[in-house]
Amino acid sequence: MFEILKQYQIISTGLLGFIGVIATIAANGYWARKQRISEIENRAKSIRSALKAELEINKSTFEARVESLESSTSPNSRVPIRTYLDVYHSALSDIGILGSKEVKSIVNAYLLIEELPTYMEFHANDRDGKALVIPQKNRRAVADLHSGRLAAIDKAITTLSDQDA
């Protein structure tokens, strides 16, 4: 037996070394995949949190505008045309790492938010810097434009919250 091991010592050492290299490569691949999955999950969580925060800002802004338009007694109301889309635009290239249900509700909400200033301009008499001058007769329509988008924003926030839990 000792003679056989002595005779095939180089081959057995080479085979053992080869098996060790293959095992190391396989283990490194496994850990690299786990690390990549963890990075993607962390990026998705960051995107969810940022989009949720931005949607909540848009929601509270829209609610405040509706309240202001409904309670105003002046002949004209000045309504800011600013909507908050910066996070959405910066995360758009990575949005595919989220689930399809999330993407659908997020894109729907943001498309409605993004088009709002254009629709508001149809009801404005004038532009005053970064605000539109809305006459009293069009206030209800502009308030409805804002409140009509709240359901889609709420749905997107809920979808993002469900995935965050």
Rank of each mutant, 00 (worst) to 15 (best):
F18T: 12
K101M: 14
S12N: 11
A143C: 04
R149L: 04
S46T: 12
A53N: 10
A32L: 10
I113W: 05
W31T: 13
F62V: 01
N28F: 11
E102L: 09
K59W: 05
F62Y: 02
E115F: 14
Q9H: 13
G96N: 11
I47N: 01
A109M: 05
F62C: 00
I153Q: 04
T61S: 08
L112E: 14
D162H: 12
S38D: 11
A152S: 15
I113E: 06
S38G: 10
G17P: 01
I153G: 04
I10E: 14
E114H: 11
A124G: 08
P75M: 02
K6S: 15
I113V: 11
P135N: 03
V79I: 03
S74M: 03
E102M: 11
A124R: 05
T13G: 08
D86I: 04
D126G: 11
K34G: 07
A44I: 06
L150A: 04
L160D: 01
D94T: 06
Y119G: 10
N42M: 13
L55W: 00
I113L: 07
I4D: 12
Q9L: 13
E3C: 12
Q35I: 07
Q136V: 10
E56I: 05
K52C: 09
I113M: 05
G129H: 06
R48K: 06
A151F: 12
L55F: 01
D144R: 15
G129E: 07
D162M: 11
V66D: 04
H89W: 09
D154A: 02
A131M: 11
R65N: 03
L55V: 02
D164S: 15
R36M: 08
A152W: 06
A32K: 08
R33N: 13
S46E: 10
A23Q: 08
D128E: 14
L55T: 00
K59D: 02
S147Y: 12
R65Q: 06
G148S: 08
K137C: 00
Q136H: 12
S105T: 15
A91R: 06
Q136P: 01
T61H: 00
A53I: 03
L16S: 13
E41W: 08
M120F: 03
E41P: 04
Q35P: 00
I57D: 03
R127K: 15
S74Q: 09
I95F: 02
